[in-house]
Amino acid sequence: DEDSERELEKLRKNNASKEEIKEVLKRLGFSEDEAKKLAEKAG
């Protein structure tokens, strides 16, 4: 959803580590696997 998109955008701009991105995604309700895949894509 839009909030998670914004959250990811912010992380990308701040050069967050894949680990940080994954944690945020998991907080947003993604499964471990989904979060890992998305973090890879974002990283």
Score class of each variant (00 low, 15 high):
Ala42His: 15
Arg12Cys: 15
Glu32Met: 01
Lys37Phe: 09
Leu8Ser: 01
Lys13Arg: 12
Phe30Arg: 02
Gly43Lys: 10
Asn15Ala: 07
Arg6Ser: 11
Ser17Tyr: 04
Lys10Asn: 10
Ser17Cys: 14
Val24Lys: 06
Ala42Ile: 15
Glu7Tyr: 12
Leu28Glu: 01
Ala35Ser: 04
Lys26His: 04
Lys41Thr: 11
Glu20His: 07
Arg6Val: 09
Ile21Ser: 01
Leu38Gln: 04
Lys26Trp: 00
Asp33Gln: 09
Glu2Trp: 15
Leu25Asp: 00
Ala16Arg: 06
Lys41Arg: 12
Asp33Lys: 06
Leu25Ile: 01
Glu23Arg: 09
Ala39Pro: 01
Leu8Cys: 13
Gly29Leu: 00
Asn15Leu: 09
Leu11Val: 03
Glu32Gln: 04
Ala39His: 01
Glu23Phe: 01
Ile21Glu: 01
Glu19Ser: 06
Leu8Ile: 09
Arg6Thr: 09
Glu32Pro: 04
Glu5Leu: 14
Ala39Lys: 01
Ala16Lys: 04
Lys37Met: 12
Glu19Trp: 08
Arg27Met: 06
Arg6Glu: 06
Ser4Glu: 07
Leu25Phe: 06
Val24Ile: 10
Asp1His: 13
Lys41Gln: 13
Lys41Val: 12
Leu11Trp: 02
Arg6Ile: 08
Ala39Asp: 02
Asp3Gln: 10
Glu7Thr: 14
Glu23Met: 07
Val24Ser: 08
Ala16His: 04
Ala42Leu: 15
Ser4Lys: 11
Ala42Pro: 08
Gly43Leu: 13
Leu8Asn: 01
Asp33Met: 06
Asp3Trp: 13
Ser17Ala: 05
Val24Asp: 02
Ser4Val: 15
Lys13Trp: 08
Ile21Ala: 03
Gly29Lys: 01
Arg12Leu: 14
Glu9Ser: 11
Asn15Phe: 10
Asn14Pro: 03
Glu20Thr: 08
Ala35Thr: 02
Val24Cys: 13
Leu11Asn: 02
Glu7Asn: 05
Ala42Asp: 10
Ala16Ser: 05
Lys41Ser: 12
Glu2Ala: 11
Glu32Arg: 01
Gly43Ile: 14
Ser4Gly: 10
Phe30Lys: 02
Glu23Lys: 09
Val24Glu: 05
Ile21Phe: 06
Leu28Ile: 03
Ala39Val: 10
Ala42Gln: 10
Lys26Arg: 13
Val24His: 11
Lys10Gly: 05
Phe30Asn: 01
Arg12Ala: 04
Glu19Asn: 05
Asn14Met: 14
Arg6Leu: 08
Leu11Gly: 01
Ser4Thr: 15
Asn14Arg: 15
